[in-house]
Amino acid sequence: MGDRIPVTVLSGNLGAGKTTLVNHLLERSGDRELAVLVNDMGDVNVDADLVAAGSDLDVDDGVAELSNGCICCELQDDLESAVTRLARERDFDHLVVESSGISEPAPVARLFTTESRAAARYRVNGLVTVVDARLFVDAFGGDEVPERRAAGEDERPLSDLLVEQVEVSNVVLLNKADLCTEAELETAEGLVAALQPDAETARTEFSAVDPAWLLDVERFDPDAVSDLPGWKRALDDDGHGGDGDHRHPDEVYGVSSFTYRRRRPFHPERVADLLRSLPESVVRSKGTLWVADNDQRQTLGQAGSSVRVTAEGPWVASLPAVEQDLYRSNRPDLDWDDEHGDRRTELVVIGVDMDEANVRDRLDDALVTDAEWSESASLPAGPFPGSTGEDAVLREP
């Protein structure tokens, strides 16, 4: 086993802080050479771009991405191919697999524990789940252990997936601990202990942990048996009830997603009002916003009632022509429109029992009209930052 590459499988609920953790590990990797595979719902892998932006690696050079699916089921072949290719083409010390917020970790781990091309090159080092501590307590906080429905039942709540993720974990990070009281954190720790007694628990803020503690300690034991119920039952019965009747989490947990793309800017005030009043069914939205009369590419990060936008840098189309040409020559794959350049809105919206048509209509209503577009310089600036690196909080829990 010593010559095989250790792999850490990272899971957690939507918006809990998985990508923040990956960037934290990359920035503080020390002498370690880390490779990262990012899986996201939707056909735009926003997390892969954010991970690459937070490191010295390019998406094609150490940060691999799998989009528009879930690696616990229909992307299994892609996952195996991606990690095998990484091992063949790059020298690195440790692989981190960041699964999407609706992926079940057991099938992902099983790829590395059964006979496969991936298992021949890798060994599982640990299964790590990141949870939003406050949401975890709100979902499950009570005197009883969270009750789970049978795997074959329809319409299991999304909270069941969080239970699945915690049950098979070796490490649970109770993230956003600064937003919880001591009593709430103790409740969260008790819930984790009830669901998975063998898991180590750590309280974190902004997913900050010691990389050595998380990556250098081998916690996954394929011969271990835990009482309630640990990884073994999940892996042995395929993590889906043992009858092979696995349905994608989209169907089981009521999760759906869509990608919203437009080559027309948003009205600054209307889109701000929309983002502040998203329906509760929208669990997560993230991506790039084009806001009228703002040269900055705005990155949206929304998780539940928290909405934040960050100015990630100027649109290439807003730069002087010489700089545009230089940038485009170095990025031949840049999505470029003859009229608008790289300016565009590209969002992934994830929800539970979400009315997609209604959300799309509301987004469309927030776009500038033809008359407003022709007079965009006179529009109000709205709350969106105008300098690279600045951010704005549009809504807080």
Rank of each mutant, 00 (worst) to 15 (best):
E65K: 06
A64S: 12
T129W: 07
R362G: 09
V36Q: 03
D78S: 14
Q76H: 14
E200S: 14
D227P: 02
D61L: 01
R148L: 11
G141C: 05
S305C: 12
P157G: 03
P107I: 07
V46D: 03
D143K: 04
V96M: 01
V291H: 07
V255L: 11
E323P: 01
S374W: 11
S387M: 09
L214C: 01
N23G: 13
C70L: 10
S281T: 12
L127I: 11
D3A: 15
A202F: 11
A371K: 12
D238R: 14
V108W: 07
A109T: 10
D216L: 05
A321Y: 06
T201I: 15
P397K: 13
G241H: 08
T288A: 14
R203L: 06
R284S: 06
E346M: 00
G152L: 07
A119Q: 08
C73L: 02
S29G: 05
R32M: 09
E27H: 03
R117G: 14
M1C: 05
T113G: 05
L174G: 10
V309K: 07
G304C: 13
V192Y: 09
P249A: 10
S207T: 05
I350C: 10
Q196F: 04
R32L: 10
Y122G: 02
T129Q: 09
R148H: 09
A188S: 10
P105A: 07
G17V: 08
D221A: 06
K286C: 07
E205T: 15
F92D: 05
D338I: 12
A366Q: 05
I5G: 08
G254V: 01
L275R: 00
S99T: 14
L14H: 03
D273R: 15
N13H: 06
L274S: 09
E144G: 00
D56V: 05
E339Q: 14
Q76K: 12
S306H: 13
D178Y: 03
A371Q: 12
R110P: 03
K176T: 00
Y327N: 08
W213C: 03
N330R: 15
L95E: 01
P146N: 04
P385S: 10
A87I: 07
D237T: 15
D58K: 15
A311C: 06
V96S: 05
G313A: 13
G230K: 02
P383K: 01
G15F: 06
A371V: 12
H24G: 11
G254T: 08
